[in-house]
Amino acid sequence: MTEETVLNESNSAGLEAFEMPLFQAMRRLQQDAEVHAKRLARYGGLSPVQLMILQVLASEGQLTASDLSRRVSLTAATLSGQIDRLEERGLLQRQRDEQDRRRQWLLLSDSGRALLQQAPALLPPEFRARFAALPQWERHALTAALLRAAELCGDME
């Protein structure tokens, strides 16, 4: 048995103690996200993903679909459907690049900008309040841990 095999086996053995609490925590986050998504849908019929798309466009000014898909962590196909729905509602618009007609820019429309000014936050108010009350080091640590967990999950779609 190689040293690497021994290390892998000992790491796997310790993993079982973490599996249930990790899954339970991920499930609670998923349930809370679903509840908040329903709240957002009651406001203007936006999903959290659609709200995030509008917020990214508001902060960036304009993006191509490929740049936007990377920024919001969506596949091109999923993003395309979301963009179509937002465009149908008049919340964003597509604009051809003047120099390269093959390139298309996505921009927030005036209606989209107005909707964003009234839109609720992406995160539930209870979470925002509790998170804001944490010391800055803990906010950074929690954010880093969640980003790392998402990275570990990879492309699980």
Results as ranks from 00 to 15, higher is better:
Val6Gln: 14
Ala65Gln: 02
Met52Gln: 11
Lys38Thr: 09
Leu7Gly: 00
Asn11Ser: 14
Gln50Tyr: 00
Gln50Ile: 00
Glu98Gln: 14
Ala17Glu: 15
Gly44Trp: 00
Leu107Ala: 03
Phe23Gln: 09
Cys153Thr: 09
Gln118Met: 10
Pro21Glu: 04
Gln136Ile: 10
Phe23Gly: 05
Asp100Met: 10
Gly14Ala: 09
Met156Leu: 05
Glu88Trp: 10
His140Thr: 12
Glu16Gly: 03
Asn8Met: 11
Gly154Gln: 09
Ala150Met: 08
Pro135Trp: 08
Leu74Val: 08
Asp110Ile: 07
His140Tyr: 13
Gly112Ile: 00
Asn11His: 14
Gln31His: 05
Pro48Asn: 08
Gln95Arg: 12
Cys153Met: 12
Leu122Tyr: 11
Asp100His: 13
Leu68Tyr: 03
Arg103Pro: 08
Gly90Ser: 04
Leu91Ile: 15
Tyr43Asp: 11
Leu79Gln: 08
Glu19Pro: 02
Ala121His: 13
Gln104Ser: 08
Glu19Ile: 10
Gly112Phe: 00
Trp137Gln: 15
Gln104Trp: 03
Glu151Phe: 07
Arg113Asp: 09
Ala33His: 03
Met20Ala: 09
Ser47Pro: 01
Met52Phe: 01
Pro135Asp: 09
Arg85Lys: 14
Arg103Asn: 06
Leu51Asp: 01
Leu147Val: 03
Met26Asn: 03
Leu147Cys: 04
Val35Leu: 05
Ser12Glu: 15
Ala141Cys: 09
Ala17Lys: 14
Glu34Val: 01
Leu146Asn: 04
Val6Ala: 15
Gln31Thr: 07
Glu87Val: 02
Ser109Met: 11
Ala65Glu: 01
Ala150Gly: 12
Phe131Ser: 02
Ala129Met: 14
Glu19Cys: 06
His36Lys: 00
Leu107Asp: 03
His36Met: 00
Pro125Asn: 02
Ser80Trp: 01
Asp110Gln: 11
Met156Gly: 03
Met20Tyr: 08
Gly44Glu: 04
